[in-house]
């Protein structure tokens, strides 16, 4: 059953916190961005609610660092964080999809032609669920940087791709997590496409010694905020 809060529309994104569709420094946007103005759609049930993923149908894949028990090459990491909405409420029992390049910066993907080795023991896909308090956690390998053809000598900073659903389709979010201190960030048109510097920097995870496991793996924390809802009469 949908309660009042679940039926409430989501709030608009604050200006500058989301990238535009047309970003001149990112060549692939040139022929793919809309030129007509977007049509405003006040949220209806279609936007206010969203899919529910059950772990029976969509089983968790919490460890990308092993295939058939054999360890992948590279620097083992544990990534965890908390998913909340813009009001600080935990987003519980929600699916988190993860994918990334291996330690050499190579995706196990037919379209990836980068001349770096494939690691048969690296699983490029993960899937976890948040707990009741919005926490998620998975184990992986620190991904390598890789070249792309956006401009001469272009390299993507180390990153992990994430997909979130939250509690309604209008809160759908696909993003990338970056690593602290990466000098490539200052050169990356995808990272720099977010106008607001504070919002941009929240895509950079933090080293977290509380989840770092001695003799085993470095820990990183990446918190995510999904859209909050407009106040409803019942809440005020």
């Amino acid at each position: 059953m949908q309660g009042e809060r679940e039926a409430a529309p989501f709030r608009p994104y604050p200006p500058g916190t989301q990238p535009a569709y047309d970003v001149p420094g990112y060549g692939s946007t040139h022929k793919r961005h809309p030129q007509e103005p977007l049509v405003q759609l006040p949220h209806t049930v279609t936007e206010s609610i969203g899919p529910h993923f059950s772990s029976a149908h969509f089983p968790p894949i919490p460890d990308l660092s092993l295939v058939d028990g054999k360890p992948a090459l590279g620097e083992r990491i544990i990534v965890h964080g908390r998913i909340t909405d813009e009001d600080g409420r935990p987003v519980s029992n929600t699916i988190v999809e993860i994918w990334q390049a291996n330690a050499s910066g190579r995706y196990q993907h037919p379209g990836d032609q980068h001349d770096a080795p494939i690691d048969p023991n690296f699983r490029g896909e993960g899937r976890v669920y948040t707990d009741d308090q919005g926490w998620y956690r998975f184990t992986s390998i620190k991904p390598g940087a890789y070249p792309w053809r956006n401009h001469h000598n272009a390299w993507r900073p180390n990153h992990i791709h994430f997909s979130f659903f939250g509690s309604g389709f209008a809160a759908r979010l696909i993003t990338q997590m970056y690593f602290p201190g990466d000098p490539l960030l200052a050169l990356d048109p995808i990272f720099l496409s977010i106008p607001d510097q504070g919002a941009r920097n929240r895509l950079v995870c933090a080293l977290d010694m509380t989840v770092t496991e001695p003799e085993w793996a470095l820990g990183y924390r990446f918190d995510v905020v999904l859209r909050g809802r407009e106040a409803t009469p019942m809440e005020s």
């Binding site: 990334q100 995706y107 379209g111 896909e125 899937r127 791709h161 979010l173 929240r202 905020v225 859209r227």
Partner: peptide, 18 residues
């Protein structure tokens, strides 16, 4: 409270989760 996390492209290699 912080605003919603920023979006980034799904990229060309999303088929790892396909």
């Amino acid at each position: 409270m912080p605003s919603a996390t920023s979006s980034q492209t799904i990229g060309p290699f999303w088929h790892l989760i396909e």
